[in-house]
Nucleic acid binder design. Sequence first.
DNA 1: AGCCAGATTGTAAGCGCTTACAGAATAACA
DNA 2: TGTTATTCTGTAAGCGCTTACAATCTGGCT
Lengths: 333, 333
Amino acid sequence: MNIYDVSRRAGVSIATVSRVLNGNPNVSEKTRTKVHAVMEELGYTPNVFARGLGLGTMKTIGIMCSDSSDPYLANAIYYLERQLRINGYDSILCCTGPFLDNKRTYFELLLSKRVDAVILAGSKFVELIDRDNDYLIEAAKELPIMLVNGYLDAPGIYSTVCDDYEAMYHVARRLIRSGRKEILYLYTSHSYSGLNKVQGYKNALSDHGIPVRRELIHQCAKDVTASRKLMEQLADSGLKFDAVMTSDDSLAVGAVKFAHIRSLAVPEELAIVGYNNSILSYCTNPEISSVDTKVEELCTTTVNTLMSVFGGGSAPAKTVIAADFIQKQTTNF
Amino acid sequence: MNIYDVSRRAGVSIATVSRVLNGNPNVSEKTRTKVHAVMEELGYTPNVFARGLGLGTMKTIGIMCSDSSDPYLANAIYYLERQLRINGYDSILCCTGPFLDNKRTYFELLLSKRVDAVILAGSKFVELIDRDNDYLIEAAKELPIMLVNGYLDAPGIYSTVCDDYEAMYHVARRLIRSGRKEILYLYTSHSYSGLNKVQGYKNALSDHGIPVRRELIHQCAKDVTASRKLMEQLADSGLKFDAVMTSDDSLAVGAVKFAHIRSLAVPEELAIVGYNNSILSYCTNPEISSVDTKVEELCTTTVNTLMSVFGGGSAPAKTVIAADFIQKQTTNF
DNA sequence: AGCCAGATTGTAAGCGCTTACAGAATAACA
DNA sequence: TGTTATTCTGTAAGCGCTTACAATCTGGCT
């Protein structure tokens, strides 16, 4: 069943059928109706490969993420996929796994599928340390590269980021103003957004005359248990803190556990702030105050920007989206 | 840059290049090496569309799921995607959204992409009530349909399911043996696995001489808050229960919240059992005893079965995987 | 009726790859 | 060395679609 069957049956040429298929206006209303009817009758579906061959594109976007089982990224994938579909695009998903083992290989695999663009979801894709981003910059010459929560200044690369700096600054300031003096800061990675977050924390302290103490800032695996253990360890080593800010809700969950084990009143003796306002922050008791990073908005904006790039319109190289602090039960300011 | 460039540069015909590309053994070692070298040198990547046109397939599997932001499905997607990639297949993701609005349209969209098979992740895809599965059965004549946690008896449809009946029977029996008499049962949907689960619960009660009481079985939205509210409501209406079994961890989280609000000792006064052993069950205090449904095994098995279908080997129409009960802190037997 | 612009349709040449078949080269053997 | 079997390589015909260009058909006008 192909375009010839349709053309024969409709008594027109394949060119006409093709035109109908592509919504070309140079077709009389009568033929258009006729062809549509035949396509319907025959249950005809154009062959995407042939189409792709002819057009050089297949309206497909590659989505790369580290680990779709991370609740935050899972959400992102959902929204990205949905918004792409609304715009008539499909998505090929590609998860590198939590360690981004060979992200470059995966990236090239996606390119080999002749996708029309690649969306990198998650800030871990942009290297801040060894700066191994050449392949992205190179690829961006050929097709749009969209970064969700990452930033790279190069032509063809578009970023949509959450204003992590501002969010963390805001949280830290409110903690300070409500009297917290020793704010522990736990983070998971040195990504673009990771650095912005910690900078917001640091600047807020400085701006309020509080010294930034190295021993209050710690990296931790993105894991409920890991963060609890780390905090126990820190407390045991004599470190004092009356609040803890985290770069991810999972760490904050560990903090709640820590407080429970040590019988600390939350938020009175220990204020806890999560990040991403994921479902995890609603599971604990007390529920964790967290920063809503607006995943949905982030994702729809990313796709919309991409569409305007496709449309030839101008698109901002970087869009910043404001976060929202959601006060729940682990803070009291 | 196409196959002609490579053939010219390597001084062979395009047929030979194509053979090398496809690992055809009828190529001398010398030419093979030469061609590989040239491909490397030129950075040649075959055009997937042309290839798809020629072969009629593109080694791509469609994955349909309701909602990738559900932690359970998110995990499933990750494992499916990974296992497919290991076998040299790509995946096109397609999320219908939590309400499965027009799953049929999505399904056909996937077919129109000429995928080699479709994997339906999540038991909600198979209709048990209005039995609107004709399109699946019809499609299965053309390409393999794989159900993860769903079952449909038709040629070309392969299922991999968790032994939900056994798991729930086991949990209920242990609760009963440890002295629980009034076990509340909360479930989210009437899916294939949903029915098996509740049947396990019912049979365990019957087999131990406990009457199955309708007022102890309730449907509830898959939502932390919804389940808490429902339980408060039930308790307020005078219903007594000393244990609660749930068909999903999110409901169990609500149960923990309920116990906390009503100051019930867990597990002494109220035992709580979750399902899926997702990260949510590790977030609460106390941590929720839950059933590990072996997502990873489920997914790898699904893909492996699919591969053996592709390979022409025999494949079981239904594979059952045993679940594991993970005792944590909300039960004591 | 004759002519022409504009609308509509058809013809045919790709797009880059696979593969059946034919042909060339090589190896094996007498 | 000649013959044949075997291995390797090339030619050319698709796969199903898009699209430039040519051809045809309108209707409005003189």
